[in-house]
């Protein structure tokens, strides 16, 4: 078990290495291809005339005049050891984890991320709980009576839900529950400040996001469960004299949900950095919102930071899936 986990973690490190190389190439090298000075993308302005010694010094400070491998090393080691960053007038010293400084927002990327990440995590965790519970429930009930009215209604509903984009369901929820009924306060409150306020501010985005995924998971659970119900070991469970609930919940769901763990881990990991639409609709300042703002302002340090964080989230989710799988499926060799 220990060796398995260590192996998976080492694998994750290798993946992160490649991710960092690719992001580095895109964000450090690609600006060189444009005819704008690369300094522009990092400082938001070109403070000195082209060819002036001051600009050259700035270029040197960012390392754009160095060989590519050395640039990569500076960039990676800078994350851990810290760097000094300036736009020619202001000098910022950032320490670990140094993901750069946004001169447009006048803030360290790391502190922008630590502000935005809890919002995204709140959104994703809450939505995940809702879609897992809802999806598995609807899927299981549908599978138990295939072709029945309950099944048709459940599957029809999920087809509808998959087809409706969040920028339709989101404003609809807002319209009904916030503007018409006035039940819900939109502004995000951190859970540490006011748990109830947090719940109130998150419940609509949770439902909007979960609706989409619940539909997918309901269909997945249904097909897995139908397959499981036809397995010989389900007949064996009945032949032992177990009651229907034990047969379905203990023997059936145990087998039917195992493949869903994989898909869930990947979905969740991907979602952390990419809930742009939900965040925009509900005015949440999460990672998605942060990155979409940065992209529109060509604020490279932030884009770079969000990309790295999203990649780490996905890799961590995958490692967790692998480890969980080893616990729930004894056939996975450790």
């Amino acid at each position: 078990m220990f060796r398995f986990i260590v192996g998976r973690l080492l694998g994750a490190v290798v993946v992160l290495f490649f991710v960092s190389v690719v992001t580095f190439l895109i964000f450090q090298i690609a600006p060189l291809l444009s005819h704008t000075s690369p300094v522009y993308f990092y400082t938001g302005k070109v403070p000195f005339a082209a060819g002036s010694p001051a600009l050259k010094a700035l270029i040197h400070q960012y390392g754009f005049d160095l060989p590519v491998p050395v640039q990569y090393w500076q960039y990676v080691s800078g994350i851990f050891t810290g760097r000094t960053i300036s736009d020619g007038t202001t000098v910022i010293h950032c320490t670990f984890p140094c993901l750069g400084y946004s001169f447009r927002q006048n803030e360290l990327v790391s502190s922008l991320l630590t502000e935005a990440a809890p919002v995204s995590i709140s959104l994703c965790v809450g939505a995940a709980v809702l879609w897992l519970v809802g999806g598995v429930l609807v899927g299981t009930v549908s599978a138990l009576r295939p072709g029945s009215i309950v099944d048709r209604a459940g599957m029809g509903l999920s087809l509808g839900a998959v087809s409706l984009p969040i920028f339709f369901t989101g404003p609809l929820l807002l319209l009904v529950f916030e503007y018409q009924l006035g039940w819900i306060n939109e502004n995000y409150v951190p859970i540490t400040q006011d748990p109830l306020g947090w719940l109130g501010s998150m419940i609509l985005p949770w439902f909007a996001l979960a609706f989409l995924f619940a539909a997918l998971y309901a269909r997945l659970t249904r097909s897995n469960m139908l397959e499981t119900l036809g397995e010989d070991y389900m007949r064996t469970a009945r032949a032992k004299g177990l009651d229907r609930r034990t047969v379905i919940v203990k023997h059936g769901l145990r087998a039917a949900l195992t493949p869903i763990v994989t898909i869930f881990g990947i979905d969740f990991g991907t979602l952390i950095g990419s809930t742009v639409i939900t965040e925009t609709v509900f005015n949440l300042r999460g990672l998605g919102y942060l990155s979409i703002t940065a992209i529109s302002q060509q604020d490279l340090p932030i884009i770079l930071g969000v990309t790295l964080v999203a990649a780490v989230a996905l890799v961590v989710a995958n490692v967790l899936v692998d480890i969980t799988y080893a616990f729930i499926d004894p056939r996975v060799a450790l």
Partner: peptide, 16 residues
């Protein structure tokens, strides 16, 4: 009354 099934691999739950 109890039953022994034909293929014990598929007749036993793989996860227990």
């Amino acid at each position: 009354m109890a039953m022994i099934f034909q293929d014990p691999l598929s007749a036993m739950h793989p996860f227990f």
